[in-house]
């Protein structure tokens, strides 16, 4: 056995030892335990294959992301099978997805969804998002412009992200609850 192969085996064994318990516990929030165990096994197998190709990959982020994507693929698959028996083939394609946190492409659908989520934010929150992400202002510049503390700017960003996420999980029928023109007061 080559030295390279031995290194990979050692790293893999250490990763399994260090991550298996917490990975299983986290996956058990999404799937029944037998399925969580299957996902963990498949994730380690994929890690093994990835290490053969690129030994320099960061193991912990990789294994966590692979396991998460596999679990979500399963859930998607189950939902599609449950709701549209004829669409099983489409769900099977999802199972072939590989983790890809780089070079993400923002689809038109994602943009529309994000736009709707941003427009549903409370006005002050939305204004902070626009100043920071569209106009590229720093937190300090935003705080001076809006007459709020830097800490409040942070709070608006953090809250806005969680509200966007809540928007994504709501039924599609939910409409914008925060129409344009609504004003709020920001105390200085």
């Amino acid at each position: 056995m080559s030295k390279k192969q031995t290194d990979i085996d050692v790293r893999l064994a250490r990763t399994v030892r260090e991550t298996r318990t917490q990975l299983l516990a986290a996956l058990a929030r999404m799937l029944p335990m037998p399925e969580a165990e299957e996902v963990v096994q498949e994730a380690y197998l994929r890690l093994f294959m990835a290490l053969q190709k690129s030994p320099e990959i960061e193991i912990r982020p990789y294994i966590f992301r692979v396991a998460r994507n596999l679990a979500i693929s399963r859930l998607r698959h189950q939902r599609v099978v449950h709701e549209h028996a004829s669409a099983v083939e489409m769900a099977a394609e999802n199972l072939q997805q590989r983790p890809n946190t780089e070079h993400e492409v923002c689809s038109e659908q994602d943009k529309q969804s994000l736009l709707a989520a941003i427009n549903s934010l409370p006005p002050a929150c939305r204004q902070v998002f626009v100043f920071r992400k569209i106009e590229g202002m720093s937190h300090r510049e935003i705080s001076e412009r809006m007459g709020i503390s830097v800490k409040t700017v942070e709070n608006h960003i953090a809250r806005g992200m969680r509200l966007c996420r809540e928007y994504f999980i709501r039924p599609a029928a939910v409409v914008d609850h925060c129409p344009a023109g609504e004003a709020d007061h920001v105390a200085g």
Binding site: L115, I118, N119, P123, A124, R126, Q127, V130, I134, R145, M146, G147, C178, P179, A180, G181, E182, A183, D184, H185, V186, G188
Partner: peptide
């Protein structure tokens, strides 16, 4: 993106 009429 809707304009925010934030009163400062």
């Amino acid at each position: 993106i809707h304009e925010s009429k934030v009163l400062i």
